[in-house]
Every structure is written in C-alpha cells, then in structure tokens.
Amino acid sequence: MIDQGRKIYFISDVHLGAPALNNNAERERLFVQWLDEIKDDAAMLFLMGDIFDYWFEYKKVVPRGFTRSLGKIAEIADSGIPVHFFTGNHDIWVFDYLPSELGIQVHYTEMHVTLGNKKFFLAHGDGLDPFDTGYHFLKKVFTNRFFQWMFARLHPNFGIKIAHGWSKKSRLDKGMGDEFKGPEKEGLYVFANSVLEKEEFDYFIFGHRHLLLDLPIGNHSRYINLGDWINHFSYGVFDGEKFELKRYKK
C-alpha cells in the first residue's frame, strides 16, 4: 500500500555530464530542483537508467562532478525514502559505490513489483529491443567481467577520455533523432507484448528511447516511455491508482 498523499516517482535519461551537450550545469540544477520538490511527498523514487552519461567505478576512483545530484539523492535516501537505481547503457558500470555511499538499491536487470494494487514491469530497456541485435552483442561485452577488469587497468584520465569520445558520437550528438513510427516498429513495445503472452502486468515502464509515450497494450495494460531530461524534461508519477507522465515546469 502507498500512504495517502504519497506518490512514487520515475525518471530516466538525465545524462548528467554529457559531453555532446552544452547545458549540463543548467540541466543538473533543474534535476536537483525537481528532486528537492518531490522529496516532500515521495513514497519511493525510481531512477530508471542513464542518469549519468558516463559512469565507471575504478576501485578507488569515480568520475568527478555530479556533487549536487549525488548529495540530493543521498538526502532523499537518508530520509527513509527508498531509492531504486537502474543501470542503463551509459551508466552500466555502477558497482558498489553508489549503494554504499548514497544508500540506494541498484538494479542490473528488470524488476517486477506490485505498487499499490498495480503490477509493474520496470527496466531501462537496453538489451530488450528484439530489433537492436547489434547492441545485444555490445551489452555482452560491456557486462563481461574480464573486459571490465581490462578497462579498469587504464588510467582514469585515459579511460574517461575514451568514454566521452564514444558518447559524443552517440545519438546525443545527432540531435536525438528518435521518432515514434508506430507500435509495431517500437522494439520495447514489441518486447512488452511478448511478455504479456506469459504474464500480466498493468504497467511497463521504460526509459532508453528518449520518447514520451503512454500507449495501451494488451487487454488492459499501459506501455510507458519516460522521455528524457534533455528535450522533454519529463517524469512519471504514480499515486497508487493511476500513472501520469508529466513535464517539469522550469
């Protein structure tokens, strides 16, 4: 059950520190401002992946920056509000630093959970699109322990430089050209339909695609894509009965 007057919040694809964007400080300020506003009535917070544009934890080193965001997330967790962090394709290398320092729970795969009286399927979405076969291979490389160990042997200055170069060539540098071309061509929607053949869910909540979508799926379910904090400045909120997509008023 969700206490009366409390809400559950969802946000994805903030891409803090993205080298392809020139408004990172402003976007982080707005993100922290949003976090500060929701903490008063939040029952739970779900950070649904790609919160950071790049994150790799060396044994003794983490990426510099994000001080305001990390502090505010820690404040929320310290207040007793559960914070769930899903790794995305940009921050896939979150290990033990964030849970130990911030007091949050990290999820590396999808999560099935009942909130209020509704059943949710939660995931960032990377690696689930049946059409994106190229990334399926890349994800196996990125999550391979040996390759992670090899990358960690690089000096952080060099490793982070490589990662930022890769990021600048990503779709962030191409104006976020994703378009919705219909449910039958939307890979995560197709994936959600395949899940419904085996198990019922009320809501499928994804990030990853940077699309702001709320679509019917199956007999009574909803497919939600949370948008992003680049073009849409959007988030989801669930009050125990209904789920809404909203845009943050800057």
Results as ranks from 00 to 15, higher is better:
V94E: 01
K250T: 11
I73Y: 06
N144R: 10
R247H: 11
A77V: 05
N144S: 05
R222Q: 09
E241T: 03
T114Y: 02
R68D: 10
N23W: 11
P19Y: 10
L45V: 15
N231W: 04
L16F: 15
K72R: 11
H136I: 05
I8T: 15
G182P: 08
A152T: 03
R64S: 07
R171C: 01
F52Y: 15
G116L: 06
S79K: 15
L115G: 04
P82E: 10
L172I: 00
L35G: 03
N225R: 05
Q33G: 02
P156Y: 01
G103R: 09
P130I: 10
M1E: 14
L30N: 10
L138P: 00
M1A: 09
F204N: 04
E101H: 12
R171M: 02
A18H: 08
L102T: 04
N231Y: 03
K39N: 11
F86E: 07
P19W: 08
Y9E: 04
D202I: 01
F238N: 02
N225C: 09
L211M: 15
A152V: 00
T133E: 14
F137V: 14
I160L: 09
L138S: 06
D36C: 09
D13V: 00
D132F: 08
F151L: 00
E244A: 09
T143F: 05
F243P: 03
L47N: 00
I8C: 10
H124A: 02
N144H: 15
Q33M: 08
G227H: 01
L128S: 10
M44Q: 15
H136D: 08
A123P: 05
M48N: 06
L212T: 08
L188G: 03
D239M: 10
N22A: 09
K118L: 05
Y58G: 00
S100L: 14
L21M: 14
K174E: 02
V195G: 01
P19Q: 09
L226I: 07
A18P: 09
E26F: 07
E179W: 12
G80M: 12
T133S: 11
L35R: 07
I162V: 13
H90P: 03
T133M: 06
G182N: 15
F95K: 03
V195K: 10
A192E: 06
F238C: 06
Y248V: 00
K181N: 13
R153G: 03
E101T: 10
G80A: 11
V106I: 12
T109W: 09
M176G: 05
K59N: 08
L35K: 05
Q105F: 13
A74V: 01
